[in-house]
Lab assay of single mutants.
Amino acid sequence: MDVRRLKVNELREELQRRGLDTRGLKAELAERLQAALEAEEP
């Protein structure tokens, strides 16, 4: 998933699904989601 191409509301939805903080600027949201995705990979 390319988090840079997601819209802010899409980033927030993905973060919320993972129980993560949904507050912040788009860059912060993308960074948070990217870190979560990398942590999920085996």
Rank of each mutant, 00 (worst) to 15 (best):
L15A: 02
N9S: 12
Q16D: 13
Q16K: 11
L20N: 03
V8E: 15
L15G: 01
L15M: 07
R32C: 01
L20H: 06
L20T: 02
K7S: 13
R4K: 14
E13G: 10
P42R: 08
A35N: 08
R23W: 06
A39S: 11
R17Y: 00
D21R: 04
L25Y: 08
L37D: 01
L29E: 04
L25A: 15
A36D: 06
L20V: 06
R5H: 08
L20G: 06
E31W: 04
L20K: 12
R5N: 14
V8N: 07
N9F: 02
Q16P: 01
L37W: 06
L25W: 06
D21Q: 14
A27Q: 11
K7H: 04
R23F: 08
V3N: 15
V3G: 05
E10V: 04
E13P: 02
N9M: 09
R4M: 15
G19L: 03
A39E: 13
E41A: 09
D21K: 06
E14I: 05
K26V: 12
L29S: 03
R5G: 08
Q16F: 05
L20P: 01
E38D: 11
N9D: 12
L25K: 15
E28V: 09
M1F: 08
E31S: 14
A39Q: 13
A27V: 10
Q16M: 12
R12W: 04
K26F: 04
M1K: 03
Q34G: 11
L37H: 07
G24E: 03
A30T: 09
D2I: 07
L25N: 14
A27Y: 14
K7Q: 11
R5F: 10
Q16L: 11
K26S: 08
R4L: 14
L11G: 02
R5P: 04
E13W: 06
R12M: 10
R17P: 01
Q34D: 11
D2M: 07
D2F: 05
L11R: 02
N9K: 08
A35P: 04
A30L: 13
L25Q: 14
P42S: 08
R17A: 11
K7V: 05
L15P: 04
E14G: 05
A30H: 11
T22V: 13
E28Q: 07
E13Y: 08
Q34E: 14
L11K: 03
R23D: 14
L33Q: 05
E40D: 14
L11C: 01
E14D: 03
R12I: 08
L11S: 01
L20A: 06
A27M: 15
L6S: 02
A30I: 15
K26W: 12
L29G: 04
L11V: 05
R5V: 08
D21P: 15
L25E: 15
L11I: 08
E10L: 02
L33S: 03
R4E: 15
E31F: 04
Q34M: 13
E28A: 10
E31T: 09
L33K: 02
E28Y: 01
R23H: 08
M1E: 00
T22N: 12
Q34R: 11
E28I: 07
L33R: 02
R32D: 02
E10P: 01
T22H: 12
E31Y: 00
L29M: 14
L29P: 04
D2H: 02
G19K: 04
D2C: 03
E40L: 05
A30V: 09
E40S: 12
A35V: 11
R4H: 15
